[in-house]
C-alpha cells in the first residue's frame, strides 16, 4: 500500500466524524459494547432523534 493511503483514510474518517456521517455507526458500536441487552434505534429513528436533541440548545453562534 502506498504511504498516502493510510493518511487519506484517516482524513476521510475524520471528515465523516466531523460532518456526523458516522454518528449512527458510532452509536451502534456504543450500544453493542455497553448495553448488549437493549435494542438500538434503527438508522432513520436515530437520525431524527439526534437532530431533535442537537437543535434544542445553542450550537450555532453569531
Amino acid at each position: 500500500m502506498s504511504p498516502v493511503a493510510p493518511r487519506w483514510h484517516k482524513f476521510w474518517t475524520g471528515m465523516r466524524t466531523l460532518l456526523g456521517d458516522d454518528a449512527y455507526e458510532r452509536y451502534l458500536a456504543h450500544c453493542r459494547a455497553r448495553h448488549p441487552d437493549c435494542t438500538p434505534l434503527d438508522r432513520g429513528a436515530f437520525y431524527v432523534a439526534e437532530l431533535d436533541r442537537r437543535w434544542r440548545q445553542v450550537n450555532r453562534c453569531c
Binding site: 458510532r26 456504543h30 453562534c61
Partner: peptide
C-alpha cells in the same frame, strides 16, 4: 452515551467547535 457524550479526537472537536 454514544450520542452527545462521546470521546472524540481533538482535531474533530476542534472542527466541530470552530464550525459552531
Amino acid at each position: 452515551n454514544g450520542r452527545d457524550f462521546m470521546p472524540t479526537h481533538r482535531s474533530i472537536v476542534f472542527g466541530h467547535h470552530f464550525a459552531a
